[in-house]
Every structure is written in C-alpha cells, then in structure tokens.
Write a protein that binds this DNA or RNA. Structure first.
Lengths: 173, 173
DNA sequence: GTCGCTGGTTGCAGACTACAACTCAGCCGG
DNA sequence: CCGGCTGAGTTGTAGTCTGCAACCAGCGAC
C-alpha cells in the first residue's frame, strides 16, 4: 500500500496513489452499473420502469411525499416527476390527494394495488440481487451497503438529502 | 452480527437476516446512483454523453476493441453501440479500421483528439469523485472499489466479463 | 456454390429527460 | 381588496439512449 502518502482528511486522494486508482475504479464500476441497471430494469419488470419502481419504493418508505420532494431527492426535473407520477396514477398504483392546508401541493400515497405490485417487483429484484450477492460473506455485504449509503449520502447530489440523510450519515461517520 | 446464520456459499443471504437488509440497501443505493449518474452526467460534460464517455474510456484502456466486444461488455444492444460508435467517429474521437483479417469486423481506436477530450473529461469527473470521496480512509476506498468490481464481475451481467476481469480481480482479492 | 453464422447498420418505436412557457393557488405589501 | 410575487405542478417540444427486428456483408463448412 505504498505508505508514501500520508492521507489527511481533506485531500486523502491524489494522483498516482492506490487510492486514486480506487477512485477511478469506483467511478468506472458505478457508471457501468448505472448503464446496466437501466438496460436490464425494463426486461426484468416490464410492469414497472426503473424510475417508476424507485419512486414507488420511495413512497413506500415515506408515504405522503409531494412531487417536488421527489424531484429534489432524485435531482430530477419536476416535469419528469410530474409525468412519472401521472403514469403511476393512471396505472392505479398511487393516489394524488390535494393537501387541504395548501391547495397547490398534492400529496402522494400508494394504493393497495401499488403496494402489491411493488412487493412483487421488489421480491423478484431482490432475488436477482441475492443470487448475485450469494457467496459474499455477511461482513462484506454489510460493509458494501454501508459504503454505498455513505457514498450516496453526499450532499452535492441532491440538495435536500443533507436534511434527510443527516441521521443516516451519523451512523457511518 | 447475529451468528444464527451459517452462510454457505449458495444461500448465504436469506430473509430477515442483517445480510438481507444489506442486500436491500445495496440494491436501493445502486439504483439511486444509477438514476443520478444519468441525470448529472449530461450536465457535467456536455461534450460527452455518459455512454460515449464510458466507451471512450474503455477504448483507452483496451485499444483496438471491436464494437461487438463493447456491446457484450456493457450488455448493450449492438445497434446502440453501433450508433454511439458512429457518433464518436463523426466527432472525430475514434477511428474505425477494417480488420484486414476479417473484413466484417471494425477495430476501434482512439484518435489524438479523442484521447485529449477523454483526458479532460476524466480529469473533471475525477475531481468531482475525489471531492466526494475525500475523507474516506484509503483502506475503505480500496475495499469499496473491490466490492464494486466484484459485484460487476458477476458473469450473469456480461458473459465476457468473466474472462476480461479475471486479471483485475486478482488485484483486489 | 450454398447454407448458416457473425459483425454491423438501419428503420422504428418507446422510455426518460430537460427546458421553457404556462396555469393555479397562496402570500404579501399597499 | 388589488397587483405582483412565489411555489407546485402541467404541458409542449425536443433530444438522447435504448432495444427489437429486418437487413446486408463477409466468413467458414459442406
């Protein structure tokens, strides 16, 4: 591990170090995954697109979010969210209720059907992931999960995550 | 770590275990990343799309690949690759040469210009990643990178990876 | 030479996205 | 109460990325 570098907190990663190579790898592999996920998501679950699935999943965890919240969380344009939400509603998977306190906002809720479908998709997707992660020692799984969370918790990605994730982040600091 | 589970190689991950939760998290975070990457890639480097960049990067590492190789590696349809390659060629970033041995295949090479642009993009992208990963202990970076590679190296995704990555994998094992 | 296979291209259609222009609802200063 | 401002969401438009299917062109076996 070439101890030539003395990593300090702000600039632990510099050119030429193994850490730098690792960063490169992380970047490359994450991107590769991104492409794949998209490509395969449709095939795996024709019923639910990748985005739809994610939004649905988000709502399962946090029922009663507003469209704007979702947009901010996922760094998506509000128009995109609007359309996705419309599609989900058309499919009967979510409901849009007008907030009685502020008639501008619409609060989103999963329907029974939505919860059901989501369960199915989650199950099959989880099976795939499980197969893929089978044979990994539990310790590695936990660490991998923690790394990913920590990585995604970076505030730069989505402004509102700062708020949302602060609790989570403490877990790993 | 609830030693109740005795992980054997094929079914280490089961319902209800911490490992299962970890799988869930991995799934969720990877997906979240996938969405984000796509969304932000365009903004970060208007010059190069996410896919273009990745293909270019691949060629930098392994010059002289064929379009089919790329398609297999990234689990993309050959038509997609064909179009991307065409675009890259139009932009003068790569060259397509006909393989003298087999006139069906076209071998892909980076041009000087391509190498140059790629360098710039890589640099700025790496800066972003570095910022994001700053403060991570080198040990964690290496492990994270290894996990990602290991994850992506799963043969189900791209049949030819098994072969291609075996060398790399050794690096991190 | 013909058949089948492989590498690649093209036509087509669909999903996801952003940007901009717009509506509608609440809010605030006067 | 009115006019202007802001925030939530929708719609029009356009661009990219994608896969599938049909296609063409070499290559190899027979």
């Amino acid at each position: 591990m070439t101890a030539a570098e003395t990593p300090d907190e702000t600039t632990a990663v510099l050119d030429g170090t193994p850490a730098d190579a690792a960063v490169e790898t992380i970047h490359r592999e994450m991107t590769a995954f991104a492409r794949r996920a998209r490509a395969s998501a449709g095939r795996m679950h024709p019923q639910l697109s990748l985005v739809s699935y994610t939004l649905l999943g988000h709502l399962e965890e946090r029922d009663g979010r507003r469209a704007t919240d979702l947009a901010a969380h996922y760094a998506l344009d509000k128009s995109t969210v609007s359309r996705q939400v419309s599609a989900l509603q058309r499919a009967g998977l979510i409901e849009r209720r007008v907030d009685p306190e502020d008639h501008r906002v619409q609060v989103l809720h999963l329907t029974e059907s939505g919860r059901h479908i989501l369960g199915q998709v989650t199950e099959s997707r989880r099976a795939a992931f499980r197969e893929r992660l089978a044979g990994w020692p539990e310790e590695d799984l936990l660490r991998f999960a923690a790394y990913l969370e920590r990585y995604n918790a970076w505030p730069g990605g989505a402004p509102d995550e700062e708020r949302e994730r602060s609790a989570l982040r403490d877990t790993y600091r």
